[in-house]
Write a protein that binds this DNA or RNA. Structure first.
Length: 892
RNA sequence: GCGGGCGUGAUGGAAUGGUAGACAUACCAGACUUAAAAUCUGUUGGGCCUUGUGCCCGUGUGGGUUCGAGUCCCACCGCCCGCACCA
């Protein structure tokens, strides 16, 4: 072969690896195991550059770990349930199953040419009955263990598609597909009791040292722990229960001006049953969008029930009870007390409904308003009314906005029931909780934002929930011997709604308990369930239980998990919950409570966007391959919009399949690793890809040239770096010594970079190494060995080219089976070191000294340097700082 | 609003508090060529002159700590991300 031909060599080595079976993982107690996992893909049918980057990073780790003596598990599968398959079936009339399995076949065919070191024998799709059957078994065990719940929940209901929609599927209050007005409906749904583990999920974040701090923080915020006080207001009117509220700022209790309850609060429901105007108000609150922005900008609505409650600390003080749309039923107790002086939201509400504003403490710069002023004078200001010792009201101007009490700053209290005069917010909160607990009218409580995980979906293409509804026995779990509850194939999608609902022969079954006619649950599981335990299933993908103990014990945990930051919260939190649940139900060992020892979140692949405008000024996008030098084929100039995530709609996509056929997989792999740190976005540029390719060609040619020299009779060559070191004498040929040192240093630095996920740094180091070998005048023998080390160092990133070079340079076995080279400490250490000399912190000269030279000797040498003498002008320096091996600073 | 992160050449980006700009792209120049492409070699932060082993400036802005700051601290400006009626 006289030309680098990726198509040829990549196919060749891929089949060599396959024949040797080296990527097949088997338990081996003699070697340390290493489980590397990339987040498995949804089978959309096409791989994209993001996949290439994600899987290449995992492959670098997997291959590197294998070369360093680990028994590596590196599996791949498909997150195959979900709506796109059903949408495709509705659009084109096919079947979700067929669509999904076709896509999997296509994607696998696109992925295999990347040469990933994956154990394909473990491949599965979550829509395989073998997989979801075990998921059903797991569900039943969780049900048994009390980790599953069935309760009512308010959902977004699309009345046309007859299904529940996720919040992000509701656009402007309408279903994203049907365009129908979305209703909020209360349905009985299945839930995983994830909130029961909130405290543990939060605390254990502290142990995840090898997770990005950002992800841990996001999870922490999501779980949302808060400490506060729960207590009740007694109702003045007869026949009503006390209203229990939760507050994180009990210290502001004397600033209360109303009690608010959620429209879904039991009291609101009770009142609505009797009073139609309250029923109307509740309905008004249920309308309106559910998206984040709509909720944010929604106007605060309140309804005065006319009822009043007593302040717990002052029986004469009565507060009105309002129903307010901004109070959530599923946080805290669904009821609050409003403290407008110290909470912006409450202030907005009180302004709108003309409720009093009472301050409990003041910032230092607060002014006392003249007594003659009235509320009206402060229409646009936040004012606070305070009862002083004599019982008269005075007004204080506090600020334009509510004065939110700082937790860590001391403030002056105007009126605190536990007698505080000056304290920080936190001290006041703690004091208040203790005070309330001592007096017996309240209780300190820890609250979480995290809610239970609703898993019911009114969908066909998902894992059936394995229970049966019997009119006599109620909800009955399916018997395990009847699993899997398989999805029926004979369904159609021409009518809206869940086909399972209208499939009598599937739906109507005898009750597993009493045998009478009953109905299957027709909801299927959220697809997040499928991805919450697949990592455990990979350890024994064909076991007839969810996992097998031996395999799970050996392979768990995932040593390195790699995926996108977009899964920082839900997928990872759900997986952490499942690992705990699987441990409770005996499917995972104790050590797997946290399933992912290390997590790495990689950045996206981005590309410039090329845009022109049509005659109406609307943007028209162009594919990168249609643009040359900023122009289309017909010469039209395109506007270049800076890099953004590759997306089909913006046409800034580069298809990996095209890149592989043009340059080969190694070029694609090399480029996605080379240009940016792995955690950051990498911009795909045609020039960059071209350059990566040129570099690989150059390395290939260097190996080829060396091989030609051997053929021309250079002589015997060494098998390994060690052999070379053992048989040659250092100090005979300085050029040889130098190249050898460089080789050892390259090994050292590339190893460190790979270990720390610095793939771009490893590649930069390899560039330098190649340039050095290229220019070196060392003997062919040493160059030969350096080149073979180079192949080893490059092999995790560009495995095919590395194997090829290895073979060209006389490698007998597969490079993938060799041991990673180790640097020799003595060779990394230099005998002399160049010390920059600073004068008053500015670099002025440099000297070369023996590495081990003492500080005093270095100082002496420094004082002899011309530049230093000149600067000193005969005087003595104030100070000389010598940082051994680093720098010298002369202070004058 | 709350929380977090980031600002370095024309560009992507390097720099355990110790020579700022590694490595790559792009550009320019040279070699090879009838020519181009490819390949190889070299230059490239800005400014100044006395062209040196020279000097001054330079990591968003302004301060501070330090012998020494891209790095640490404070304030500000800009950008990005996450969360958000959470009581």
């Amino acid at each position: 072969m006289s030309r680098y031909s990726p198509a040829e060599i990549e196919a060749k080595w891929q089949s060599a690896w396959e024949e040797s079976g080296i990527f097949k993982a088997q338990r081996d107690a003699a070697r340390p195991k290493y489980y590397v996992l990339e987040m498995f893909p949804y089978p959309s049918g096409r791989i994209h550059m993001g996949h290439v980057r994600n899987y290449t990073m995992g492959d670098v780790i997997a291959r590197y770990k294998a070369l360093t003596g680990h028994n590596v598990l590196h599996p791949m599968g498909w997150d195959a349930f979900g709506m796109p398959a059903e949408n495709a079936a509705m659009a084109t009339g096919g079947h979700p199953k067929e669509w999904t399995y076709n896509n999997i076949a296509e994607m696998r065919a696109q992925m295999k040419p990347l040469g990933l070191s994956i154990d394909w024998s473990r491949e599965f799709a979550t829509c395989d009955p073998e997989y979801y059957g075990q998921q059903q078994a797991l569900f039943l065990d969780m049900l048994d263990a009390g980790l599953v719940d069935r309760k009512n929940a308010v959902v977004n209901w699309d009345p046309v598609d007859m299904t529940v929609l996720a919040n992000e599927q509701v656009i402007d209050g309408k279903g994203w597909r049907s365009g129908a007005e979305v209703e909020r409906r209360e349905l009985t749904q299945w839930f995983f009791k994830i909130s029961s583990m909130a405290g543990d999920l939060l605390e254990s974040l502290g142990d995840l040292d090898n997770w990005p701090a950002k992800v841990r923080l996001m999870q922490e915020n999501w779980i949302g722990q808060s400490r506060g006080l729960q207590f009740s207001f007694d109702m003045v009117q007869d026949g009503f229960d006390p209203v229990t509220v939760y507050t994180t700022r009990p210290d502001t209790l004397m600033g209360a001006s109303f009690v608010g309850i959620s429209p879904d609060h039991p009291l609101a429901r009770k009142l609505a049953a009797e009073r139609p105007e309250i029923a109307d108000f509740r309905q008004l609150c249920q309308k309106g969008g559910t998206t984040a922005e709509e909720l944010e900008t929604a106007e605060k609505l309140g309804f005065d029930t006319g009822l009043t409650v007593r302040h717990p600390l002052d029986p004469d003080w009565e507060l009105p009870v309002w129903i307010a749309n901004f109070i959530l039923m599923d946080y805290g107790t669904g009821a609050i007390f409003g403290c407008p002086a110290h909470d912006q939201r409450d202030l907005d509400f009180c302004r709108k409904y003309d409720l009093p504003v009472v301050a409990t403490f003041m910032p230092d710069d607060c002014e006392i308003a003249p007594d003659s002023m009235s509320d009206a004078d402060f229409a646009n200001d936040c004012i606070a009314k305070v009862k002083d010792e004599s019982g008269t009201h005075r007004y204080f101007r506090i600020a334009k906005t509510a004065y939110v009490p700082p937790k860590d700053q001391k403030v002056k209290w105007i009126n605190h029931f536990a007698g505080l005069k000056e304290a920080t917010g936190q001290e006041a909160i703690d004091t208040t909780i203790t005070f309330a607990e001592e007096k017996g009218w309240g209780e300190g409580k820890t609250q979480y934002r995290l809610r239970d995980w609703g898993l019911s979906r009114q969908r066909y293409w998902g894992c059936p929930i394995p229970v049966v509804h019997c009119s006599d026995c109620g909800v009955v779990p399916e018997r395990k011997e009847n699993l899997p509850v398989e999805l029926p194939d004979d369904v159609s999608f021409d009518i809206p709604g869940n086909p399972l609902d209208r499939h009598p022969t599937w739906r109507d079954v005898p009750c597993p308990s009493c045998g009478k006619p009953a109905k299957r649950e027709t909801d299927t599981m959220d697809t997040f369930v499928d991805s919450s335990w697949y990592y455990a299933r990979f350890t024994s993908p064909h076991a007839d239980t969810p996992t097998s103990a031996k395999d799970a014990d050996y392979w768990m945990n995932v040593d390195q998990y790699i995926g996108g930051i977009e899964h920082a919260i839900l997928h990872l939190l759900y997986s952490r919950f499942f690992a705990r649940a699987m441990q409770i139900t005996g499917h995972l060992p104790e050590k797997s409570r946290e399933p992912f020892d290390a997590l790495f979140t990689q950045g996206m692949v981005t590309h410039e966007i090329y845009q022109t405008r049509d005659d109406k000024g609307r943007p028209v996008y162009h594919l990168p391959e249609d643009v040359t030098d900023g122009k289309l084929a017909d010469g039209t100039e395109v506007e270049i919009i800076p890099s953004a995530k590759m997306s089909k709609s913006k046409k800034n996509v580069v298809d990996p399949v095209n890149i592989i056929s043009a340059y080969g997989a190694d070029t694609a792999r090399w480029f996605v690793l080379s240009d940016s740190p792995p955690e950051r976005d990498v911009e795909w540029t045609a020039a960059g890809a071209e350059a990566a390719h040129k570099f690989l060609v150059r390395v290939w040619r260097m190996a080829r040239d060396l091989a030609d020299q051997r053929d021309a009779g250079v002589g015997e060559l060494d098998k390994s770096l060690q052999d070379l070191m053992d048989s040659m004498q250092l100090g005979q040929n300085p050029l040889d010594d130098e190249l050898l040192r460089t080789t050892h240093k390259a090994i050292d630095e590339v190893t460190k970079s790979i270990e720390s996920f610095g793939f771009n740094a490893a590649i930069a180091r390899i560039y330098t190494f190649v340039n050095t070998i290229n220019k070196s005048q060392a003997s062919a023998r040493v160059k030969w060995t350096s080149m073979r080390v180079l192949a080893q160092l490059m092999s995790p990133m560009v495995p095919h080219l590395a194997e090829e070079i290895w073979a060209i340079l006389g490698g007998e076995a597969l490079l993938a089976k060799t041991a990673w080279p180790t640097p020799d400490d003595a060779m990394i250490q230099d005998n002399t070191v160049t010390l920059p000399i600073q004068i008053n912190g500015k670099r002025r000269a440099e000297i070369s000294v023996p590495t081990e030279m003492g500080k005093e000797d270095v100082e002496k040498r420094v004082l002899e340097v011309d530049a230093v003498k000149k600067a000193l002008e005969g005087t003595a320096p104030k100070k000389i700082i010598v940082v051994p091996g680093r720098i010298v600073n002369v202070v004058i």
